[in-house]
C-alpha cells in the first residue's frame, strides 16, 4: 500500500505551527516512514502535484492568495485540518478586524509608521503580483469545510503527532485536558 500523502501550508500565520511540526525532532524520521510529504515548507515542494490524503493548514485568510490556496487544498485533500489559533479563529492577524479598515492598515504600514523610510511620495504597493488584502481576516472554517481542528498557539508537537498517527492508523484519539492546557 502506498504511504498516505500529506500536504501542509501556512496562510496568514507565523510559521509557528510548522515550527511545532519540526519540533517532532527525531519523530520526523518515524513520520516519513508512515507518510509522504507533498507540498510543504518542510520539504520545500512548492505546488500540490497529487491528490493528498491529509492537508494541514496553518493560519487564517488575510488576502486573496490565502483564499485561493485554501480552496486548492480543500479540492485536493481528503481530510483538511485547521492547525493552531490563526487557522481556527483568525489569531493575531485578526486583531485588525475590529480596529482598522484596510486603508487605515495600509496608511499606517507604508506611510505613517515611524519606521517608514524613503517613501516620500506616499506610495502604497499595488503590483499586479501582490495578492489583495481582504476586508477582514477570516478563519478557515468560514471559507471551506474543515474536518478537524487542532487547538494551540502553537499546538504542541506531541498533539500534532497524536493527531497524525491516529488519523493514519484509524484509531480514536483521546484529547486529554493537559495536552492543550498551558498555564
Amino acid at each position: 500500500m502506498n504511504k498516505p500523502l500529506i500536504a501542509t501550508t501556512s496562510l496568514a500565520g507565523c510559521f509557528g505551527c510548522h515550527m511545532s511540526i519540526m519540533d517532532l525532532d527525531d519523530r520526523i524520521l518515524q513520520l516519513i516512514e508512515l507518510i509522504e510529504f507533498n507540498k510543504s515548507p518542510i520539504n520545500d515542494i512548492k505546488t500540490l502535484s497529487k491528490e493528498c490524503d491529509i492537508g494541514i493548514i496553518e493560519g487564517g485568510c488575510a488576502n486573496s492568495d490565502n483564499i485561493r490556496l485554501l480552496k486548492e487544498f480543500r479540492k485536493n485533500c481528503r481530510v483538511l485540518i485547521a492547525v493552531g489559533e490563526c487557522a481556527i479563529m483568525g489569531g493575531l492577524p485578526a486583531m485588525r478586524n475590529n480596529s482598522a479598515s484596510i486603508s487605515e492598515c495600509l496608511q499606517e504600514a507604508y506611510i505613517d509608521c515611524v519606521s517608514v523610510q524613503a517613501n516620500d511620495e506616499g506610495l502604497i504597493p499595488n503590483d499586479e503580483e501582490l495578492p489583495m488584502l481582504l476586508d477582514q481576516v477570516y478563519p478557515c472554517h468560514e471559507i471551506v469545510k474543515i474536518d478537524y481542528f487542532i487547538p494551540g498557539c502553537a499546538p504542541r508537537a506531541d498533539l500534532i503527532w497524536d493527531v497524525l498517527t491516529a488519523l493514519i492508523s484509524g484509531k480514536k484519539m483521546e484529547l486529554s485536558y493537559e495536552c492543550f492546557k498551558f498555564d
Binding site: 486573496s64 492568495d65 483564499i67 485561493r68 479598515s101 484596510i102 486603508s103 495600509l106 502604497i124 504597493p125 499595488n126 499586479e128 495578492p131 489583495m132 488584502l133 481582504l134 476586508d135 477582514q136 477570516y138 468560514e142 471559507i143 471551506v144
Partner: peptide
Amino acid sequence: VSEFDLSAAVRESCKITNRIPGPGGG
C-alpha cells in the same frame, strides 16, 4: 455553505490600489 464573498472582501483594497479584481475576485 460558505457565506464568504471574495469580490466584496477585496473591494476596499482594490479601490485603494486602483486595481481591478481578477476572475473570481482575486
